[in-house]
Design a protein around this nucleic acid. Structure first.
Lengths: 233, 233
DNA sequence: GAGTGGTCTAGACCACTTT
DNA sequence: AAGTGGTCTAGACCACTCC
């Protein structure tokens, strides 16, 4: 029993989802059907489906079935956009300005990103909430993984939904490193602040379902009217 | 089947742990024994134990058994102390200064803390890493839940381990709200900074295994040499 | 009523740890 | 060798959704 049966069932389904064979929203076979198809018992298929639900890749509902998780702008924001009003409510940010450029990767980008890309796409954005610019973010992705993206401006508000729909790249996790700094000049200008005003500096590495580092993102955030919410356990 | 059997098994065990009947490190009955004791099958007892492991309350190891999770200063820091060196390594902070006072709760403290306490204990600490003060934190807990704590100074480095060992209060989750601010005068002084230097302001609500808000904590952190690490999913 | 996931049982065998 | 958790099976019944 080197690798458990349910593990291979999970891998099979993950592969089908990552390849686009099972697009967002598709209904999966029932526990019984899946077990029959893959030659395992219903209980083993069930265990695999439950782990997939836990990881967020599928959603299950009694009486309805199992479905590939649909990532909407709302759910994506809820998971990966952490700025909230002090009472905890989330207000979707508006896109103010966007610049997309292709350039060669820096050494650290080449070292960090999946596939050591020669070229990357840099997406610079300013987003605002309630008419107030709050975030200045710079995202960097491998050019080869996202062909033609530079010609598709303006890009949708939530990039991760777009990555999934247009490129079958499913972001499932993001590791962030936060710090407080004085606003750099460019960000200060974009956010309407004096240079040196305390802002939150966030460096993110976004990882997809195949554990590939797909995006590096740095954002400078105003936190005078909003808070960055996080839960530890 | 209003409440599933495994749910009542879970609740039974949680109660035994929270009451101190099963202290940290104790071995639990095996799946078979537990099932026999509570009148359920081995599979149902197993499901309960697996959920308890997932929630972090117990740890299981093949061939050894199931044990109430031992919270050491190391594991507690790993979970709830997020400041790391840029390469991700964690260095335990030293306790520089500590002040413990009893006072009446403010209105917001009374509203937020479990049991609307009349009196609270305030623990003010300065902690340093590598000889450099990095954190100025103020923790507030209900006085009635922690009798005699004011007379036990100096308190151990990791408060949550102490809460559990001395009072059977098991912190399992902490919700934090972060922001960047200019260092307030008192914190600037404690951290050896000029007032107004950008620092990270963290407001925490710590919740125990019975979902009670047990502690409010505000900390001011230097993030020039360290980063605050967090993972989103 | 048919089909789905959710719960529960009983039993088997394997892998691992400890004595 | 004994005892533990880990995997897997087969079958049953319940609760829910949808037609």
């Amino acid at each position: 029993m080197a690798t458990p049966l349910y593990r291979t069932v999970i891998d099979t389904i993950v592969e089908r989802i990552a390849s686009g064979e099972l697009p967002s929203g598709t209904m999966l076979p029932s526990e019984t059907q899946l077990g029959a198809e893959l030659g395992v018992s219903q209980g083993t298929a069930r265990k695999a489906l439950m782990e997939l639900e836990q990881s967020g890749l599928v959603q299950r509902a009694q009486g309805r079935g199992t479905f590939v998780t649909v990532r909407t702008p709302e759910t994506s924001l809820f998971n990966f956009f952490r700025l909230r009003h002090p009472d905890g409510t989330l207000e979707g940010p508006q896109l103010d300005r966007e610049t997309v450029t292709r350039r060669s990767a820096t050494d650290t980008e080449r070292a960090d990103l999946h596939g050591s890309p020669e070229d990357v796409i840099e997406i610079e954005r300013v987003r605002s909430i309630g008419g107030q610019p709050v975030t200045h973010e710079m995202s960097v992705i491998p050019a080869a993984m996202f062909p033609g993206i530079a010609e598709r401006q303006p890009l949708p508000n939530t990039l991760y939904v777009f990555y999934q729909q247009a490129y079958s790249v499913i972001i499932v996790r993001a590791d962030e490193r936060l710090g407080a700094i004085g606003a750099p000049e460019a960000s200060a200008k974009a956010l309407g602040l004096d240079a040196g005003t305390p802002v939150m500096d966030v460096r993110r590495r976004a990882v997809d379902v195949l554990e590939r580092v797909v995006e590096l993102r740095r954002s400078i955030n105003r936190t005078d009217a909003l808070d960055y919410f996080v839960s530890l356990s």
